[in-house]
Write a protein that binds this DNA or RNA. Structure first.
Lengths: 144, 144
DNA sequence: ATCATGTACTTGTATGATACAACCATTTTA
DNA sequence: TAAAATGGTTGTATCATACAAGTACATGAT
C-alpha cells in the first residue's frame, strides 16, 4: 500500500475542510441557515423522524438538532407533528416553503460546484463523486 | 455535463464536512491543537513568513492566525524571530519539538486514514488523493 | 396499580474557532 | 515631515456545537 497517496489524502483533507470553512464563513447567501442544510435535507428524505433519529443520522448532539429543528420550524420550513402514540415525541415534516427553500439552496450550491468543476472531464467528476461517497461511507462510524 | 455527478459531489461534500467535524469534536488526542495543524504545517514548509502571509495562505483572518501562532509559540512549537529590517514584523520558525509534534500528529492522522481505506484499491486511493488536490486547487480562490 | 427506571425532547451553560473592528508601532509615500 | 499604509495584537461578538440538568411521558417489575 503506497504511503504516498494516503499522505496526499491526509493533507488535502485538512486543506479541504479549511477551504470550505473559509467559504462558509463568508456567506451572504445565507438564506437557509447553513448548518441546518443537512438537517432539512434529512427531514425531506425521512418519512417521520424525531430529533433522536435525526441526530443519530447526522452525528450531532441531540440538543443541537433540537435547536436547529426549532429554528427551521420557526422559519416555517418544517412542521412538527406530534406522534400519535407517544405524547413525548414529535416528528418533523418538510413544508411547501421548506422544500422550495431547500431546492433553491441546493441549486445554489450546485451552481457553485458546476462552475468550479466546469473544466473537469466527465469521468473525473463521476469518479470524484463516487469516491467521496465511498469515503463518507467508510468514515461514517469512526467516532464510535 | 452530467448533473448527476455534480449533485452527488454537492451532497457528499456537505456530508463529508459534517462527518469530519463530528470526529474532530470528540478528540481527546488533542495534543496538537487541531485547528493549528495546518498552520504548523505551513510554518514548517515556509521559509520565513509572518502572520500576514500565513493568514493569506490559510485563508484565515489575520487575528485568528495571530492567536494560533501565539499559542503554538507558547507551547514551544515555533519560535518568533524578529524580522531584521522591519521592526514591526516577525517571522515564525518551527522548533525541534514542534517538528516532532507535527510529525507525530501527522502520523496519527495517517494511521487513521490508512485504517479507513485499507480495503481500497491502490488506484482508488491514488485517484482520490489527486482529485481532492485538484478540487482544493479549484476551490482555492472562491471566497474572493 | 405503583413506583423506579428509561426515553424524547428542551433549555441552560460552556467552549472553540472564527471574524471584524479598534488599536499600536513602524514604514512608506507624497 | 505629515499622511497613509502595513504588520501585528487585542477586545468583543457570533456561530456551531457539546454536555449536563431538567420536564414530561412511557414502560416494566413487583
Amino acid at each position: 500500500m503506497s504511503k504516498e497517496s494516503l499522505t496526499t489524502i491526509e493533507l488535502e483533507m485538512a486543506v479541504l475542510v479549511r477551504r470550505i470553512t473559509s467559504i462558509a464563513s463568508n456567506r451572504k447567501d445565507d438564506s437557509l441557515v447553513r448548518s441546518a442544510y443537512l438537517l432539512l435535507h434529512q427531514i425531506s428524505v425521512e418519512e417521520a423522524a424525531g430529533v433522536k433519529t435525526l441526530s443519530n443520522e447526522l452525528q450531532l448532539d441531540i440538543s443541537t438538532v433540537s435547536r436547529q429543528a426549532a429554528s427551521l420550524e420557526q422559519k416555517g420550513y418544517v412542521e412538527r407533528v406530534p406522534s400519535p402514540h407517544d405524547k413525548r415525541a414529535y416528528f418533523y415534516r418538510i413544508t411547501e416553503i421548506g422544500l422550495k427553500e431547500l431546492t433553491q439552496y441546493k441549486k445554489l450550491r450546485l451552481d457553485k460546484i458546476s462552475k468550479l468543476l466546469h473544466d473537469w472531464e466527465e469521468d473525473e467528476q463521476q469518479n470524484f463523486g463516487q469516491l467521496l461517497k465511498k469515503f463518507n461511507y467508510a468514515i461514517k462510524d469512526l467516532s464510535s
